[in-house]
């Protein structure tokens, strides 16, 4: 039980705290390095298949996990109709496979393309391997422990919520089969590692682009604004450099 306590109580909190504090600190200290570090410029063809399959797949699967976690009752209601449940499961599994294929491609590309090797560091490989094993476990679970969309909602969602509510209830998870437990532990390990890896880039995904005007003009010292009597006298700090 103590070991389970460590895995399902201590680890999640360590991971979440590391993620939050680490990301903020990384952004403040070395914000310059927070970038998607695209390597498309050096190699494009293999990236196309790998990156497309991986990113769209992980977006869908991540959203699936998130929705089930946030709205377990709604998910269960949706799943009450077997046809809808099957559709959901098949879709989730397809996206899972897509991640698996894409990520494997990306991993091999990293190892085998001389140019890409030059922009690869050890952490890139570690996190790709971690993600890869996580996806393999995920697909295994989807195949071996059918109807995950439902049991996630009924068993795992309450556990995750109990963590959020600072009152961890780990009976249900402790009783899960080892594959699922490994998958959960893996998830928290990855979350905790985000600040130390290139995964940071998803935190700066450019959604604000949708809402901003296309052109951007910045004044270091906007005389018109400064001279306008209606402008409140504040310390006006330029934002552009």
């Amino acid at each position: 039980m103590t070991f389970n306590n460590f895995l399902f109580v201590a680890l999640p909190y360590i991971a979440i705290i590391t993620f939050v504090i680490g990301s903020i600190q990384r952004y403040r200290a070395t914000g310059f390095k927070v970038s998607s570090l695209s390597s498309q410029f050096l190699e494009g063809r293999k990236l196309y298949f790998g990156s497309m399959a991986f990113h769209w797949g992980i977006l869908a699967v991540f959203m699936g996990h998130l929705i089930t976690f946030l709205f377990p009752t709604a998910t269960l209601a949706w799943n009450s109709n077997p046809v809808r449940l099957i559709v959901l499961e098949v879709m989730a599994f397809t996206f899972g496979l897509s991640i698996l294929i894409g990520l494997t491609g990306l991993f091999l590309r990293r190892l085998s393309t001389p140019r890409i090797k030059m922009v690869t560091n050890r952490m890139d490989l570690i996190i790709e391997l971690l993600l890869l094993s996580q996806v393999v476990l995920g697909c295994w679970i989807a195949l071996g422990y059918r109807w995950g969309a439902s049991w996630f909602a009924s068993d795992l969602s309450p556990y995750l919520w109990s963590i959020v509510k600072l009152n961890p209830q780990i009976e249900a998870v402790s009783a899960m089969p080892p594959v699922i437990r490994t998958h959960i532990v893996g998830a928290f390990v990855i979350i905790g590692m985000i600040p130390f890896t290139r995964l940071m880039h998803f935190l700066v995904a450019p959604f604000h682009y949708i809402f901003r005007p296309l052109q951007l003009v910045m004044w270091t010292w906007d005389r018109r604004r400064v001279r306008d009597p209606k402008t409140v006298w504040t310390v006006h700090r330029p934002k552009n450099n």
Binding site: P206, H208, Y209, Q215, L216, V217, M218, W219, T220, N240
Partner: peptide, 12 residues
Amino acid sequence: SCPSGAIYKRGE
């Protein structure tokens, strides 16, 4: 085109 809004034209 810049999704991050990193590119700008200096007003001055």
